[in-house]
Amino acid sequence: KQRYNKAQYANVMQSFKEYGDFYSNVIIHDGSEARPTIYDISKTVNSYVGRTGKKPVVIIDYLQILKPTNDRGTDKANVTTSVNEMKKIATRYHIPVIVISSFNRLNYNSPVSMEAFKESGDIEYSTDVLIGLQLSGVGQEGFDVNEAKKRTPRDVEAVILKNRNGATGDTLHYAYYSMFNKFLDMDDTENYSQQSKPESRTQVDDDGRVFSSNKEPV
């Protein structure tokens, strides 16, 4: 508690409370030491559904660092195998499988497109929805990616490249706060700035009771 002022401490306590409402439904498999193959992920999902009877949302972060299913296979062949197996998981249980993919390095300074995804052929053909994130202004004359990354917040665009059951081509605009890894709709940024001012933050008194700047302790 001594590490924070009252407003910061209140934020920490509120975060614990909100996370406590759903943390039991979140299962994280850390692959930093032993990278899983897509078959390992498939077995984990099969086991979870069989054990609990619940259908999870599967998030894979990220595609290119999965362990290859064939050490002698090319990157393209291994990505193809992984993407195809992900599709089987999704269709087998009728669940969403959300996959994060890296870009080709040559496309870092170009507007996002199908070609920006590594081994994009299989990603393009197998996905139902494909969304690309890019910094606003990328590809325009005078654009500096390093300067764009220094901004707080960063202007970020989500481009809907493919939508099997809906419209494509839309661009959604967000403000990205890297300190909190948080995306906000551009229309909400003004409200967010107002809420973040010290006078309107939640605070804690010396007894640990939470209160806002305009309310009595609760």
Rank of each mutant, 00 (worst) to 15 (best):
A34G: 11
Y48G: 02
A116M: 04
A7V: 04
Y39N: 13
G121E: 02
F16D: 11
R35K: 13
V210P: 09
S113R: 12
G53Q: 13
N146L: 03
M179K: 14
G31K: 04
A148D: 01
S126N: 09
T152Y: 07
Y192E: 07
D30M: 05
Y39C: 06
L106H: 10
F211V: 08
K1L: 08
D185L: 04
D75Y: 09
P111N: 13
T44K: 08
Y62W: 08
G169N: 06
T74N: 02
I160C: 06
A116S: 15
L66V: 09
V49T: 08
T52V: 10
Q2G: 07
K88F: 06
E216W: 11
S196N: 15
V129L: 12
V145H: 08
I59C: 06
R92T: 15
G132I: 00
D207I: 04
R151T: 09
K55F: 14
D206W: 06
K43W: 05
V49H: 07
K149W: 00
V99H: 01
T189V: 14
D122F: 01
T74F: 02
V26T: 06
D30H: 05
S136G: 05
I160D: 01
K55C: 09
D170P: 05
K55L: 14
N11T: 13
V97R: 02
V97P: 02
A175H: 08
I28E: 12
I28M: 13
S110K: 15
F103Q: 03
Q140E: 14
R151C: 05
F211K: 12
Q140H: 06
T202V: 13
S15K: 03
R3E: 14
I27C: 07
K76Q: 08
Q140F: 03
K150R: 10
Y192N: 09
Y93W: 12
Q14V: 08
F180N: 09
L63S: 03
I131N: 06
R51I: 05
T52I: 09
D155C: 10
I160A: 02
Y125L: 03
G121D: 04
K88N: 14
S178R: 12
R151E: 12
T74V: 07
P111W: 04
Q195T: 01
K67A: 15
R105H: 05
F22V: 14
Y174H: 03
L161G: 03
Y174P: 00
P198K: 07
T37A: 01
K88Y: 05
Q203K: 14
I123D: 00
Y177H: 08
T69K: 07
A34W: 11
G137T: 10
N165Q: 14
S42K: 15
I60M: 13
V112D: 00
M86R: 03
E85K: 10
S213E: 04
S113F: 07
N214A: 14
V12Q: 06
L130G: 00
A90Q: 01
E199V: 05
P153F: 01
S102Q: 15
Y125S: 07
V97Y: 03
K87H: 06
N46F: 11
L161C: 02
K54S: 08
L161A: 02
T127K: 01
F180K: 13
V58N: 10
Q134G: 08
T91M: 12
G31P: 04
V45K: 06
I60V: 15
R92F: 11
G31N: 07
G137H: 10
E141T: 09
S113Y: 09
S193N: 15
V210M: 15
S120R: 00
